Simulated scan of single mutants.
Amino acid sequence: MRTRTFRLTIYLRCSGCNIVADDELKMALSKPMLLLSPMFVYMGMEMTFWMNVYGTALGYTLRFGTERERLVGLNGMVVGAGQIAGGFIYGLSANWFRKRGRDLGTLIALLLHFAAFYLAFVTLPDTASLEETDKRSYFAIDSSLAMICSFLLGFGDAGWNNPLFSLLDTLHPHNPVAAFAVFQGYQAIGNLISFAYSTCLTLPYQLAILVVAGVAGQFGFCIVEWKAVSDEVKAHMSKCASVASQLSEGTVATSVCDLDLTETKV
């Protein structure tokens, strides 16, 4: 009896896992998630860059002298400080970005990343991500610029996360855990791709790939964001029309609708 109960429990659990896996697979292949996938992949590639490539490049740049080992550790701390600052500022500005469009928040984050990529390009030697080198860079080696780049990478990373998680919650309010799991799956693909090419491509080529991926991610995010806002407006107008049909005075329903539409981006 116990054996049968145990087998039945395992079967039910496995069946539940299969159902969850099927739902997540369908969600991952849905149109909104496919449009957001370039952004997910870019975030994984960018994470690999600041966690692995950029710190390695700092340590391999011999012109930093005795500071280069210290800069490798400081890079992680400064990136973390940038993420904390970005999360704090974006958290306080969440309602402001929601009214004016979450795509504005990701655009600002993308521009901050581009600024960081430019600083990395002009301050570090081309081959610094692959081997120790004492080659000259376009600008004089400056540890302060290197740390500014680290801070921008962390701040921009938070700028991508906050609007994205807000959008995922809007798209899948009843199953945000599955949506986040899909995001992590695509992000892991970006990690894998970035780790693969980071062992053979010099720094300028890696930065160029990140720029292209970032633009593609922003483009896909904008399409999904605009569609989500449009659906919210349509749903609200439909609700207002339903209320108006049930009320004897249409002015009351109109005032209720106008109250909410002032906080909705058209």
Score class of each variant (00 low, 15 high):
Y197H: 13
L259V: 05
L92S: 07
L192I: 15
T202P: 08
C17A: 15
A178H: 11
R13A: 13
Y42S: 01
L25C: 03
A109H: 02
K265H: 07
K26D: 13
N175I: 02
G65C: 05
S255G: 04
T61E: 00
C240Q: 11
A244M: 13
M237W: 11
L192T: 12
W160Y: 15
V20W: 08
S15Y: 13
E225V: 03
C257I: 01
S245D: 15
P32T: 05
N18Q: 13
V78Y: 01
S150W: 02
A213L: 08
F88S: 00
A140I: 12
L124S: 10
E263V: 10
I193Q: 07
F219E: 05
V122S: 02
T5L: 15
L261R: 12
F6D: 08
Q218V: 01
Y205M: 10
D134I: 02
G44Y: 12
L62W: 01
T48A: 07
A109V: 03
T133R: 04
T5C: 06
F139D: 05
R13W: 09
A213S: 15
A178T: 14
T251W: 00
F219Q: 06
I193K: 12
Y197D: 13
V212D: 06
Q184V: 10
L210F: 01
V211A: 09
R136F: 07
F195S: 11
F88N: 00
M47L: 12
L124D: 11
A188L: 09
F97N: 02
A57N: 01
G65A: 04
T254A: 04
Y197S: 10
S194I: 05
D134C: 03
S144G: 03
P173D: 11
L12C: 10
F40W: 11
E46V: 05
W50T: 05
V212Y: 04
F155R: 04
S93M: 14
G55N: 00
G101N: 06
G250T: 12
Y90W: 05
T170I: 09
S248K: 13
N52P: 01
W226P: 00
L247A: 04
C240K: 08
V266H: 09
G86Y: 05
V72S: 02
S129C: 10
Y54W: 11
L12Q: 14
M27V: 10
G185T: 02
Y205P: 00
L247Y: 02
I108P: 00
L261S: 11
A94R: 03
T133P: 05
E232Q: 13
E67F: 00
M45A: 01
A85K: 01
F64T: 00
F155T: 13
L92V: 06
E46I: 03
I10M: 12
V252D: 12
L261T: 14
Y42H: 09
K99F: 06
E132H: 07
M1D: 11
R4Y: 11
T251I: 02
L119F: 09
L112E: 06
D142N: 15
S248P: 04
L110G: 07
F114L: 15
I108Y: 04
R136Q: 10
V72T: 09
G217D: 11
I89M: 14
I10K: 09
A120R: 01
T56R: 00
H172G: 03
F88M: 03
R2F: 12
R102F: 15
E263I: 08
L58M: 06
F121H: 09
V182I: 09
T202E: 15
R136P: 01
Q218F: 13
E46K: 07
R102A: 08
